[in-house]
Write a protein that binds this DNA or RNA. Structure first.
Lengths: 233, 233
DNA sequence: CGGTAAGCGGAGGGGGCCATCCGTTTGCCG
DNA sequence: CGGCAAACGGATGGCCCCCTCCGCTTACCG
C-alpha cells in the first residue's frame, strides 16, 4: 500500500504540480460520474466537469478503458476484501450470506461497478488474478455453507453469477431506488438459497414495471424534428 | 382479428403488390433480428438483410420506434393473454406461478422484448391500455394467491417488477443460455415467494461471472490502432 | 400495350462518441 | 528573473447511427 502504485516504466515518475492536481481531479470526477451515470458517460463530460480540456484527460488516461480501470481499482479491492472477511467468519452460512449481501451492495451503490468489474477490457494481469481469487473464495464459501448444511445442496457456484446478473438488472431498472430494490431481491434469493427456509425480508422498493422491463436508459428530452406531416408543405 | 388492422387515415389502404411484399419481409426480418440481437440492431442491418434499401424501410416504418412497435405488438398480446389464462385458473397459486413463468419465458425468448415491452416510446394509447390491463391482472393474481394463503403476505405487486428486472439482467448476461438461466432464477424466486417453502429447481445454467457482472454487449473484434508506445516513436 | 404515379435504392445531412494534433500557456530550475 | 520543456485546450478526424432527398424503375389500369 505505498502512496502511489508504480507507473509505466517508460513514463516519467515525476509530474508537474498542476498536472498531478489535474490528474487527481479527473479521477475524482470520473469516480463520481461513472458511479452515478454508468459507463456511458462521455469522456467530454468528465473533462468538462473536471474543468480540464479533453486533451488533458487523454494525456493522463490514454484511453477510456484506462480511466475506468484506474477508477474502479479500489472497488475491486473492496470486493476482494469482502470475500476475505467472509472466509474468516467461523459461521459458514453467515459468512456466505454477508459476502453476498455486501458484494451486491457494492454493485448497487455504484452504477458503473458491475460493468467495470471485469472492466470489460483485457484487464491487467494483477487485477485478473485478484478477480480469480475472489471467485475462488466465493466458491469456497459455497462449499463450506453447503457442508454446514445450511445452503441447499443443489446450489451451484454459477448461481452466484445468476444472482449478480439479477442484481444488475434490478439496479439498472430501479434507478434511485437501486440499493433498496437490490436489498429486497437479495433477501428473497438468500431465502431461496437457505436450506432452512425463509427469514425476514427487506422492505419493498418502489420499482416500476416500465423500468423493470426496459425503459430507455435516459430519455431526457427529445426535441427531434416533427414528423408525421409529410415534408410537402 | 381482421386480416390487417386499420391503417393511418391519410395513407392509402391499398399497397402495390411489391410494396406489400417488401413490408412483410421487413417485418419478418426485424422480428428475427430484434429478438436475436436486441434493440441495438441498426436499421441498415435490417434493410440489408431484408434485401431492400434503407429508404424502403423508412417508407414503410417512418421511424425505428414505429418498426419496433409493430414488431412487438404480438408479443404484447401474448403477454396479455398469459395473464388472462392465469386469471381463469381456479387454483390461485398455480395461476400466479404459471403467469410468472410464462411471462419470464417470453422475456427470455426474445432479447428485444423487455426493452420493447413498453416500446420505450410513447406507445399508442391502445397498447398502453392493454399494458395497464395486464399489470392490473397481475396485481389481481397477487391478491388471489395471497388470499389463498400460498403467496407470502409480505409480497407486494412491485416485487413482480423486481422479478422482471432481475430476469432481464439474467437474460442479458446469460446470452445463449438465457432461457435456462431465466428458468432457474424464476425457480428460486417462486420458491422464495411461496409461503409453504421451496419446491424443486430447474437445472443450473452455465452463466459466467464476467457476463453476470457486465461484460460489454458485443466485443467482436476491435482491431483498433495500436497504443501503449508513446507517439514519440 | 403504353402512360403514370407508386415504389425503389443509395448518397449524404446531422449528431454523438472516442481519440489525436498542434499552437499556446505555465510551472519549474538555474 | 528568464528560458525551456512539460502541460494545456480546442479544433479536428474517423466511425456509427438515425433519418431524408432525389433521380430511376416498375407494377398497375385503361
Amino acid at each position: 500500500m505505498s502512496a502511489e502504485s508504480s507507473r509505466l516504466p517508460t513514463a516519467p515518475a515525476r509530474l508537474r504540480a498542476d498536472a498531478r492536481h489535474n490528474r487527481d481531479r479527473i479521477a475524482e470526477v470520473a469516480r463520481d460520474l461513472l458511479a452515478t451515470r454508468g459507463l456511458d458517460v462521455p469522456m467530454a463530460a468528465i473533462a468538462r466537469r473536471a474543468g480540464v480540456g479533453i486533451a488533458t484527460l487523454y494525456r493522463h488516461f490514454p484511453t477510456k478503458e484506462a480511466l475506468v480501470e484506474v477508477v474502479f481499482a479500489e472497488k475491486f479491492a473492496a470486493c476482494a476484501s469482502v470475500v476475505d472477511d467472509a472466509l474468516a467468519d467461523p459461521d459458514a452460512w453467515r459468512g456466505f450470506r454477508t459476502a453476498v449481501e455486501r458484494v451486491c451492495a457494492l454493485q448497487a451503490d455504484d452504477h458503473g461497478f458491475s460493468a467495470a468489474f471485469v472492466a470489460a477490457f483485457p484487464a491487467p494481469d494483477a487485477r485478473e488474478r485478484e478477480r480469480a481469487r475472489a471467485v475462488e473464495g466465493m466458491a469456497e464459501l459455497t462449499r463450506r455453507a453447503q457442508a454446514a448444511g445450511r445452503l441447499r445442496a443443489d446450489f451451484v457456484p454459477a448461481d452466484l453469477a445468476l444472482l449478480m446478473a439479477a442484481n444488475r438488472g434490478v439496479i439498472a431498472a430501479a434507478g434511485r431506488a437501486g440499493p433498496a430494490a437490490s436489498k429486497r431481491l437479495v433477501g428473497y434469493l438468500l431465502g431461496a438459497f437457505d436450506a432452512e427456509g425463509a427469514g425476514p425480508l427487506p422492505p419493498p422498493a418502489p420499482i416500476d414495471l416500465l423500468d423493470a422491463v426496459g425503459r430507455p436508459p435516459a430519455p431526457p428530452v427529445r426535441p427531434r424534428a416533427e414528423r408525421g406531416g409529410r415534408p410537402g408543405a
